[in-house]
Design a protein around this nucleic acid. Structure first.
Lengths: 230, 230, 230, 230
DNA sequence: GATGAATGAGCTTTCATTCAT
DNA sequence: GATGAATGAAAGCTCATTCAT
């Protein structure tokens, strides 16, 4: 089990998905980081439960165990909390997904692993996933002003795999990678949203991952998919 | 050009997507319908531009050319406006999509037509599409209380095609129709959202439709897709 | 049974306490009067049930079976309805109470009869009484602008009896009639209000009338009360 | 002059009728109490001037020198301000009246003192008295939901005196204490209201107190009133 | 840095009144 | 006269944000 797996397998996400950026050197620094983390963790919960607009800063503060005003020492405003949750977590998610994908030897297996890893994240971090999928869209500042590279970078993991596959002749060259990446992401997103709204799932996301992967791999590979020897 | 095509091809959506339910018999009825329609049309615009929470009832009223209070003669509250936009339009969209799909002779062609029709709607009614895709999720009442059959019904158009295809041996039986329908819908939704956020499109949604259709049809059909003789 | 007794004894007050001012000459006039009456009757009910400020003009209209706007053909505004209910009814009440009181031969018996008649009215017309006692005080226009002579006139029935009694040596001359009349009226009002708020009475207002009368007659008569030969 | 007399004699009621509950220990506590007090004081004024329904929260805030929102840090809503004014003041009034009454040696003198004290309060705190008498009845929540023990307790001061008098044979036993207390209270209330509406009095409330007391004492005592040796 | 009381702009919704028909 | 759809001013209340301590 490596560093990443701890994160992904943890059953109590709040304790792990906001991490300490630097090695703690002093108790003060540590306390500071704690406070920031606690606010972000609390925000994830409240956003997930209430939605962005109905989430009250006061409630986030209460859940984080800090004063209302303290939040504004760490974040410019409510929108920024949301955006930072997204950016910081995406950074981690991207690193993790990249590492997972790299463990596979060929493009098709990498795509399959991507799909598996994406839905595993949703399963392990449902509240965070809900914030990513539903609440982010409620912030005007996010949708209209945010030109976040994180999301693009995440999508590009798929895009690059597609391009790589096209270069190797494994993936049909008549498809736009930019479209494929969005189509796959959209499919995963919708499956995940449905699972989340069903109160964390009556059905098996792992099974869904296999089906989605199958559909896309068959759909985009150049030949009738002989996955084993791409 | 039939009745439907007028709707789908119109370049000024507001004038056509809210229709008169009954043949106008008196000027009064007409005026009344006009007012209700104008409010809904105005709401679509404002919701699309500002988002649900930042949309002010006063602005909807101004855009509709009515007084603030008038809105409450036709709708119970702001949430209800959103929900009614959705319900009334979905009803139409479903009927239209069904009619389009029925014009094709086989399951695969029907799926392709579904994809084409979906993205055509987005292209022709961008603001409405944006409300469907983004703003609806901002209304708590919508997300948490609305068990809308409209959306389910829409998804079921795909679901039924999949089941039909599976029965006929055209579509792989190892896939869950419930998953396929969401995966396809999610893919289309994501493509559409991206196109909408790009300020109505630098690229060709028609082309995207073909690619998406190709991917899914290849992905879910039982044999290497010989689309022509399903 | 005379004309008055019909009014006072009626068990369904709404039908009788708003009367036709003039002999009907035409059906139109009659209809007109009906409409005005119906509005006043409806207003009494709604004011009594909801209180003046929470009474909606639209509800009065609905209960009266007329359109909202129609009310403004008969009354200047909501306050005026209240004031006119008061004035018109007080006119009748005063006439009735005077007639009752005149049937008695001496001042003390007249006072006793006043008390009895007042509480009998409350018992027979609880909604109207409630409007008189509670809702009238909610209308600013009533309290601050109304220099109604009706109420003064009603109070003066007592005041005149007191003065008459003082002139005849039956009532102590060290009391101000202006104070006695208010004290007695206030006592009756409080008893009535309590009875009304108790949902029209667990206890016997007739008995209360006798006690109140006893207290005041003893309290204000010059000699130990020999009521029989004043 | 004792602690109470300061309250009752003060010429600037607002400064005294909202008191500091605890000895101030810190400036913070003091400021907090001040703010709450200032709001209540301002509310009394505005309610008295405008009536409950026409009193605007914004005006109370302005008069109290706080922001609109601050009021909601101390009170749940407008109705609660009214109810708390009533409850907190009644508590004080009851204590004061009890203390006054206890200074007298016999039931008759106690009743007289009650009457004097009641009207003295009205004279010294006209705005508060007006709120008690007029505005409280405008709040639906007050009338319909408030089962205030304060008012009952106040009325019971009279009721207990009457019972005590009956037990001692001083007061007629054929009278219901529950009726006597309401009759006396109603009489005082009406006198007070009239005095208040006359813009704080053309006539002498002290004189009125003596007359009211005389009437009731004569009216309810068992023997021709020889007040001196009850 | 941390606090949390205070702020006040801004919102939805209501409803007495009007007026075109 | 009668209607009732339309009006639009008005106000209670919320809550993100600030700032004195």
């Amino acid at each position: 089990m490596n560093a990443h797996s701890f994160f992904w397998e943890c059953e109590s996400p709040p304790q792990c998905f906001i991490r300490q950026k630097f090695t703690r050197r002093t108790a003060d620094l540590s306390a500071k980081q704690d406070k920031r983390s606690r606010i972000l963790q609390a925000a994830v919960k409240v956003f997930a439960e209430k939605g962005f607009y109905n989430a009250k800063v006061a409630e986030i503060a209460r859940k984080a165990g800090v004063a209302d005003g303290t939040i504004y020492l760490y974040f410019k405003n409510k929108d920024e909390i949301l955006i930072l949750i997204f950016e910081e977590e995406m950074e981690r998610v991207i690193a993790h997904v990249r590492a997972e994908v790299e463990q596979e030897g060929n493009v098709v297996a990498k795509l399959r692993r991507f799909v598996q890893t994406h839905l595993k994240f949703v399963r392990k971090n449902p509240k965070l996933a809900q914030v990513f999928q539903l609440e982010l869209r409620q912030s005007n500042k996010f949708i209209k002003e945010y030109t976040g590279s994180s999301l693009k970078e995440y999508l590009n993991i798929i895009g690059q795999l597609v391009e790589e596959g096209q270069a190797k002749g494994v993936i049909r060259t008549d498809l736009h990678p930019g479209l494929v990446k969005r189509a796959l992401f959209g499919a995963l997103d919708e499956i995940a949203t449905h699972w989340l709204l069903l109160k964390n799932g009556r059905y098996d996301l792992n099974q869904s991952a296999e089906e989605i992967a199958d559909i896309f791999i068959r759909g985009i590979t150049a030949e009738p998919p002989h996955e084993q020897h791409s």
